[in-house]
Design a protein around this nucleic acid. Structure first.
Lengths: 208, 208
DNA sequence: TCCGAAACTGAAGGATCATTCATATCTTGA
DNA sequence: TCAAGATATGAATGATCCTTCAGTTTCGGA
């Protein structure tokens, strides 16, 4: 469906001096800014470099090509989200299904809204390149985690725990994505924050 | 966030002879094929024309630019989906909330899976250009329709019907999108078909 | 059969963009 | 302070792509 990722995805070199670390950071935030301001279609190396206050060549010292840069950004975002979710999972071990569902939904919303700007940017990148596979992988890891968590609930009696976990993951991922891409009006996010935990809890209760 | 749409969105001229209608159709299907085979990034006018078996110039006789073509395709898809949903709405007037929720979910799944290929392609196009607004509009129309439908349910007692409708729309739209973009494995779609109606019904029941 | 309109062709113009590399500047340790 | 490595620069290259238009082919009615 989408562009194949080139072989070389890793950063070209690691920073040895302090200034280069700052440069990398500047490039990252510039990329996200350009992405949100001008869209994926106008995300050019020149524009990013300009916004970051560096020259194009500098970018190529750290990333072998544009896609490696985008990949790095997505990767970072994905990791912090995973961390948040893992922390929540620890906390929710052994809780009842209702608590568990609400906890997962809240954690997901927290993770995604912690840096709304980046989150929205990620969606744009993922759509353009074939990070579909990459994100599908992240989702299946999420499903596994949720599945394991559900098994620890004392009141669980699910005929098909995996389907339930799949469904929870899909409901969380999908609804938040749709709302954030649709402009992420504050009101809509507030609604989601109120209703999504309830929806997840209701689903698990019904499936149980 | 995304590229602005150029002023001229309408087709350049309407077909007068039979062959031109066939040409337009060929261009449309070719576009979707290229989109799915090579991704948005490689969706070039030349490639589409080649696949459609026409010359580039021919394309420009019907669409003032590439975006107009993509816009037309999205538009068409959106319309058929809307039609399916409206038909379902008629059928579900006055039904209980549970029936209603399941009916909506099933209708949505039917609409989206009727032409999986096109549906997936649409998501790709919408991400690239700023059809975000356009699709947000479609979604808010959906919310209105659902809201009206909910009001006709005899067992409705919702404190905030609009939030409930919003939530149903978001759950439907999001979950299907995520699954289809993640490669749309047959098994996942089957799961969704089984669980999504249940999830919607459970949510509405809990909110009522 | 013939003609004007409709539809089609595809090479070429013009613009954008990713990537490179020879050169310049800065940092650090000795 | 100085040299060597690290980092930054940005004009130039080459490739890709959208869009145009002058000319050709096909269609349908008279």
């Amino acid at each position: 469906m989408n562009r194949r990722l080139p072989a070389l995805l890793q950063p070209r070199k690691s920073p040895r001096q302090a200034r280069s670390a700052a440069t990398i950071e500047a490039i990252h935030t510039a990329t996200i800014q350009v992405l949100l301001a001008d869209g994926v279609g106008k995300l050019t190396t020149t524009r990013v470099a300009e916004r970051a206050g560096v020259s194009v060549g500098t970018m190529y010292q750290y990333y072998p090509h544009k896609q490696a840069l985008l990949f790095a950004i997505v990767e970072r975002q994905l990791e912090t989200i995973m961390d948040t979710m893992m922390a929540a999972t620890e906390r929710l071990q052994g809780a009842d299904l209702a608590i568990l569902a609400e906890g997962l939904a809240t954690a997901w919303l927290d993770a995604k809204t912690a840096d709304i700007v980046s989150s929205r940017a990620i969606y744009a990148i993922a759509a353009e390149f074939d990070l579909g596979e990459h994100m599908a992988l992240a989702m299946s890891r999420m499903i596994e985690v949720i599945c394991g968590l559900i098994a620890t609930a004392p009141d669980t009696n699910l005929a098909d725990a995996e389907s339930a976990a799949f469904m929870v993951a899909v409901l969380l991922g999908g609804s938040v994505r749709v709302v954030m891409e649709a402009g992420a009006a504050e009101g809509d996010l507030a609604r989601l924050r109120r209703e999504l935990p309830r929806a997840c809890a209701a689903y698990l209760a019904a499936a149980n």
